[in-house]
Write a protein that binds this DNA or RNA. Structure first.
Lengths: 188, 188
DNA sequence: GGCCACCAACCGTCCGGCCGGTTTGACCTA
DNA sequence: TAGGTCAAACCGGCCGGACGGTTGGTGGCC
C-alpha cells in the first residue's frame, strides 16, 4: 500500500488501495464499485473516470500487484547468496520471510487474485508471467531434476492454505518445514 | 458424476451435477440458480424445492464432494503398501494418479471449492476436516520432521496450479517431480 | 382426497455503467 | 495582474438487467 507520508495519495491510488482492503476484509463479493468509491472518498462517477469498468479496475489491481511481486522477487534474489539453488532459495526466502505482516501480505495477495479470477481468469496473466520467469531462472539452478518443481509447488501450497484459510502450520511445524525446504534447496 | 446407467438420475442429483458442470465449464459467476435449473431440466421452482437457497445448494455440493474425497483417500490408503510414509504415500498416490480424466477431476473439484468459497468461506469446513484427518494420519508416519508437511504442501501446490490455471508441468517435468516426491515420501 | 414433486410467472434488490453537470487549476493575453 | 479559456478531474442521480427468492398453482400417485 502507499503508506508513505508526503503528498496525499492520488484518487487513483486511493481507489486501488480501497478495493484491495475491501476484498481482503469483507470478501470478494463485497467488492463493488460503489463500496470502493465510498471507502476511497470518491464518487462513483469519479471512480469510473479513472477506471472505465470494473474489469479495468481489477486489471489495474493485478498489474500493480504483479509489479510489486516482480520487484520483491528481484530483491530477494539479489539478497541471496549465489551458488546451487540460487533462484530457488530466493523464492523460499521470499515466501518464508518472517516480517511481522506476512499474514496480511498473503491475505491481500490472495484477495486480489480471487477477485480478479472471479471476474475473468485471463486477468491473472501478469501473475502467470511472473511464475514463468521464476521457473526459467530455476531451470539452470544446479538442482537435481524435479527438485525445483517440488519446492515451487510446496511454496504454492503454503500460499494456497492462506488463500482458502485451510490448515496453517503452527510455529514448530513451520520451523521444521522451513528447515526441510532450505535443506532441499541447497543439496544437489 | 453420476454417470452410471440404470434408473434415471433424480432431480436432486441432476441439479448437483449441472451446478458442477456450469462452475467448471463457464466459471463461478455463471453459476446461477436459473442456469443450474435449466441445465438440469428442472424449473427454478423445482430446484428451490430441493435446495431452499443458493447456500443450501453449495453446501450440498461441498458435502457430496467431501464424501467422495474421503472415500477416495481411504481407497488410496488401503491400496498403498504399509511402512514408512504410508499415509503420505497414499496422499501422493491419489494426487498423482494418472487416470485419464485427472485434469477434469481437478478442475471440477477446484470449481466447487471456488464457488463455495466465493459465497461463504465457512462452507469449506468439510474439506478442512478431510485435510485435518490426513495430517493426523501423517503424524505417526515415521518420516523426519517437516517432511510430511512439505509433501502435503507440494501436493496442495500442484492442485492450486489447477485451481488458478497457472503453470502446469509438462509430462517430463511431472515425471521428475513425481519421482522426487515418492522418493522423499519413503526415505527416513 | 391429499400429498409429493414440480412448475411458471412474478417481485425486490443490488450492481455495473451512463450522463449531464460542476469545480479546479494551468495557461494565455492585454 | 485581472480577466478569460479550456480541459482534466470529479460529482451524484438514474437506468436497465440480472439474480435470488416467493407464491399460487397443477398433475400424478397412493
Amino acid at each position: 500500500m502507499d503508506d508513505t507520508y508526503g503528498p496525499p495519495a492520488s484518487a487513483r491510488t486511493r481507489v486501488l488501495d480501497a478495493a484491495e482492503t475491501i476484498a481482503a476484509e469483507r470478501g470478494v463479493q463485497a467488492l463493488t464499485l460503489e463500496a470502493a468509491a465510498r471507502l476511497a472518498h470518491v464518487s462513483k462517477g469519479g471512480l469510473l473516470y479513472h477506471f472505465p469498468s470494473k474489469e479495468a479496475l481489477l486489471q489495474a489491481m493485478l498489474e500493480r500487484l504483479a509489479g510489486e511481486l516482480h520487484a520483491a522477487y528481484d530483491a530477494a534474489f539479489a539478497a541471496t547468496a549465489p551458488g546451487i539453488g540460487h533462484a530457488t532459495r530466493a523464492m523460499l526466502h521470499w515466501t518464508l520471510s518472517e516480517h511481522p505482516r506476512r499474514r496480511e501480505r498473503d491475505l491481500r495477495i490472495a484477495s486480489v487474485l480471487l477477485a480478479a479470477f472471479h471476474h475473468d481468469p485471463a486477468l491473472l496473466d501478469p501473475i502467470r508471467a511472473l511464475q514463468t520467469r521464476i521457473r526459467e531462472m530455476q531451470r539452470d539452478d544446479g538442482l537435481p531434476p524435479g527438485r525445483a518443481s517440488l519446492l515451487a509447488a510446496a511454496s504454492d501450497g503454503l500460499f494456497m492454505a492462506e488463500v482458502f484459510r485451510l490448515h496453517r502450520p503452527d510455529e514448530a511445524e513451520m520451523r521444521d518445514l522451513a528447515a526441510e525446504l532450505n535443506r532441499l534447496a541447497a543439496t544437489p
